[in-house]
């Protein structure tokens, strides 16, 4: 019973996957299954292949070898438009040269839902407003995006991805530009969506304590391979942090939140 439920929730299945940029191998021998309704963290050092893995999941890069399926259909067999209603992305870097208003950018998230020559419907506008409320940018809606700070811009991009109403949200270090207040607020909103609406999040995260606090499971990438994939309680151990990140650390169980809490040895 439990196992059939599990296959029903299967989203991504990666088998024998490898990828290389020209002659530089980045990922190899990746076998992975990701299920719906979970918050996955992807952790690993710089250059361990986190962003590449996320791009492969988005279908914006094609694997060199192996296969990726989404809901049992090859990812490459989905049309771009169809995929846009299922997966959305918050990229690591975002810049904008044209002075679109914040509202227009968030509305662009509705692009896959609005027919080519149609105007946005009332329903679309409501979703856009809701996404701006969630990201705390409603008061910025008429500002040109070229006049925003890095953190504000990042929240605009997140709101755009939320307005897309996909099944899966892929975050590539989406909170790295944000202050602690907004980081926690946004992670809480995301967590709530996962728990209450069965939303799926796959997020590359640099801040290990943040990953430990909000994720259900973490994938650890090392040298282009999956070093470990497990629940956060099992992932965050002194041994793993030593092997993967080459740092000395103590992991406590935080009495306040019941999440693993990592303390690094700085000196």
């Amino acid at each position: 019973m439990i196992s059939s439920q599990k296959t029903a929730g299967l989203l991504f299945q990666l088998a024998g996957l490898s990828f290389a940029y020209q002659k530089h191998p980045v990922l190899h021998d990746i076998d992975l299954q990701l299920y719906s309704g979970k918050f996955y963290g992807v952790i690993g050092g710089n250059g361990s292949g986190k962003s590449t893995l996320l791009e492969l999941l988005m279908g914006t890069l094609l694997p060199l070898n192996g296969t990726i399926t989404y809901r049992k259909k090859l990812l490459a067999n989905y049309s771009k438009k169809e995929l846009a209603t299922k997966l959305s992305l918050v990229p690591q870097h975002f810049s904008m040269d044209f002075d679109y208003r914040v509202y227009d950018i968030v509305l662009m998230g509705r692009h896959p839902h609005i027919p080519r020559f149609a105007s946005p419907a009332q329903h679309d506008r409501e979703i856009v407003t809701q996404a701006m409320v969630t990201m705390d940018i409603l008061d910025l809606q008429n500002r040109p995006v070229t006049a925003l700070s890095g953190g504000e811009l990042q929240r605009v991009v997140m709101a755009r991805a939320l307005a897309q109403e996909s099944e899966v949200l892929i975050l590539d270090e989406a909170t790295s530009n944000l202050d602690i207040q907004h980081t926690i607020a946004i992670m809480q909103v995301m967590r709530k969506r996962v728990v209450e609406q069965g939303f799926t999040i796959i997020a590359a995260i640099h801040d290990l304590n943040l990953a430990a606090a909000f994720c259900d499971e973490c994938l650890v990438l090392k040298d282009g391979q999956i070093y470990a994939k497990d629940t956060v309680d099992n992932i965050f151990t002194s041994d793993l942090l030593q092997t993967v990140f080459s740092v000395e650390a103590v992991v406590d169980n935080n009495t306040m939140t019941k999440h693993p809490q990592i303390q690094f040895k700085y000196q």
């Binding site: 791009e55 995929l83 992305l89 679109y100 662009m108 998230g109």
Partner: peptide, 20 residues
Amino acid sequence: ARDLNIMALGERTANTLGVD
């Protein structure tokens, strides 16, 4: 024209919004 607007988000993001 509308696809051109979306492409202002950058090629990678435009692709994830269903624009070829």
